[in-house]
Design a binder for these strands. Sequence first.
DNA 1: TGTACATCAGTGAACGCGCGTTCACTGATGTAC
DNA 2: TGTACATCAGTGAACGCGCGTTCACTGATGTAC
Lengths: 217, 217
Amino acid sequence: MKPHPHLHWVRPVQQARSQQTIERLLDAAETLIADKGFSDVTVAQIAARAGFSVGAVYSRFRDKQGLLHCLQDRFVDEAYLTTDAAFDPDRWEGASIEEIVSEMIVFLVEIHRERRGVLRELLGRTRYDASMVERRERLNAHISQRLSALLLVRAERIGHPDPEAAVSFGLRIVFGTLEQAILFNDTGAYGVPASDDKLAEELTRAFLGYLGVFERT
Amino acid sequence: MKPHPHLHWVRPVQQARSQQTIERLLDAAETLIADKGFSDVTVAQIAARAGFSVGAVYSRFRDKQGLLHCLQDRFVDEAYLTTDAAFDPDRWEGASIEEIVSEMIVFLVEIHRERRGVLRELLGRTRYDASMVERRERLNAHISQRLSALLLVRAERIGHPDPEAAVSFGLRIVFGTLEQAILFNDTGAYGVPASDDKLAEELTRAFLGYLGVFERT
DNA sequence: TGTACATCAGTGAACGCGCGTTCACTGATGTAC
DNA sequence: TGTACATCAGTGAACGCGCGTTCACTGATGTAC
């Protein structure tokens, strides 16, 4: 991982090893937070797991919250790269709406499952932090626009009167459901398909159903 | 509001005025929590707003968390009554699936808007408390079953291969979306319809689209 | 290449503060005869 | 109907503890000549 571009929350780095320190602290924080939740993890624990003392955290980050911001930054940066790669129009030459939506949702389900811990915390514990909400919203908008770009050139198959709005609201529906079905669901919630495959299948059906994608005739 | 049935979290009541105390404390807590969030409200503030001292809280509730549990109880009880009234089959004699779903979603949107504060906290801050999650799940299942009862007698209009599963997952989709679109959305999130009317309309479309409700021919 | 000095990286004990919880007490309500 | 006693309701100052944050310090790295 490259030196981090968003230094607003990080002290500027003078020596190369500081960058390593930052990454090690972030890694430790990510693991612990994913496991126990942000407010149940102490600064001391994070430092210890990274092999530092408490002071090291404060020489790199403004405070505990600043560390969380950096974690989000790192995560969001990855997400941008992934989005752009995944929705590259060249990749989807000649693909149908069904194929695009289905693959996208399978992927989203996987990602939510794999990174459940971090996502859960980044969404859950940070909803009250305006700047984090904003960053998340921007990412959301970006994903939405990339997806739209792919689907709208195939808009003749979409029955919804306002296809552009439908794609972005449809995506919101998907994210909202994944949040309930995967991130905040420990005990097999009522109505949620038991397997991730089935979940992806039903979400795909829902998305296509909402867009009003016609059977090809 | 009647004396509370779930006394597990409340000290048993010997005198009548204690019940009033409980309600006053719960009212105060509900207002404050809806406004500032559970963990940002102190026991002292709750007591003060209700016109008591801190000790009064502890003579009625096991601890701060116990108070939250009672708040959820009170809320959930209301929700059960509302559900049973709303989904009373007699009320919907001769109604179409579209009418039922549309009215239900309009109502859900309203409720989420009106009780935004409490709902947000009851969902958000309590996801890590197993017993609260369970109560919520049971309510969810109940709503789902009531709705199913209404829709499945009209199943001939449903295209989804498993109508029963579809109704309950569809409801999950609706709740998940409402959570993002109303509860945790302060700043007009990307892709979310600007007005509640429009939101309800689109959610209805999504629900019906997912069920695969055919145009009546 | 070596020496002297400045800056940076990281330490960890100590601090401080907020807030949940307790507990000895006062006053109010109910009960027994 | 009144008196004595027991129990309950509520007070609020004091406690305690966890945890984020600080700060004086040591050691490491870089720079100048």
